[in-house]
Write a protein that binds this DNA or RNA. Structure first.
Lengths: 156, 156
DNA sequence: CCGCATCTTTACGTAAACGTCAGTTTAGCA
DNA sequence: TGCTAAACTGACGTTTACGTAAAGATGCGG
């Protein structure tokens, strides 16, 4: 709960990033190539890529959605573009301080996106729950049979 | 809960099977090709494949594990082979009625496999749960801000 | 200023999981 | 018995998501 506030946010290079998020440099470059990670583009081509902690967090999230939800990179790209749109709106928010109607509009759209993602997660959760119940049922049946076997052994 | 007991178990052809499980004939043939569905091999090559309701159920399960758990076909193949081993043991069981020690051994192995699958499912469930909580937290923050906005509108 | 690890771009390679022809055969039915 | 839909067997093509190798540049400790 307490941000120690001492770490000066040292920028990381691609290899270190790859290690901390559990992937490879090639994958990171590939994600940038297809537009999933456009961030490090402000770099004089030919020089090493540098990543902030926020970049790392973002990549971590992408990898999670890929692994846990099984989203394709295309789907992730769409999702990220929506997030970017939201970020742009938040920037507009802070700079211009638009009228109240516009603000509500922006927030509602953001809520819509989040609800979409949550719906996806919930669906997967239900599917997994069904699977878990079926497997548990099988397991119970087997355990019952094993117990009967143990009892009969006692009788002998 | 009531098996109507009237349907005479008409065997299906590959196209119908594909429709009911939501896949394609090619995919089904491919799964047979790599050894995921060896069942229909008792067929004079050149003739149409025929599938029982049990076959369909099996394919449905495979597709589910593929989609919901994101297992590769190799992993599914391993899993299916274990199931087959279990089935073989159950056959041995019924025919020979082996001694009690052997029976316990068989049951325990089956339980082990089930526990393995369940562990996998549980892990995925935990990951999804974490993801859901994070998304929900974000959502709550946004809703709070939107409400504040509505209040201020009332003041104006 | 030099060496060494790490990074750069470019480009071709690959494994998984099917899609898509092509030419032929089978099976239900009028 | 002849038609037509659907299935059969190759075989090659495609997409996704990176791996890998080559040839050079960068950047930091000593």
């Amino acid at each position: 709960m307490s941000t120690v506030a001492a770490v000066p946010e040292r920028p990381l290079r691609i290899g270190e990033v790859a290690r901390v998020v559990g992937t490879t440099p090639r994958t990171i470059r590939y994600y940038e190539e297809i537009g999933l990670l456009s961030e490090a583009a402000s770099r004089p081509s030919g020089q090493h890529r540098l990543y902030t902690e926020a970049d790392v967090e973002r990549l971590r999230e992408i990898v999670r959605l890929r692994d846990v939800l099984g989203l394709t990179l295309d789907e992730l790209k769409e999702l990220v573009e929506h997030e970017d749109a939201r970020a742009a709106l938040r920037a507009e928010w802070r700079r211009g301080a638009p009228d109240t109607t516009r603000r509500r509009q922006i927030l509602d759209e953001a809520l819509g996106h989040l609800d979409g993602q949550l719906a996806l997660v919930r669906r997967r959760q239900r599917e997994l729950e069904r699977l878990a119940e079926e497997l548990s049922a099988k397991r119970r049946r087997l355990r019952t049979r094993r117990r009967q076997l143990a009892d009969r052994k006692g009788e002998a």
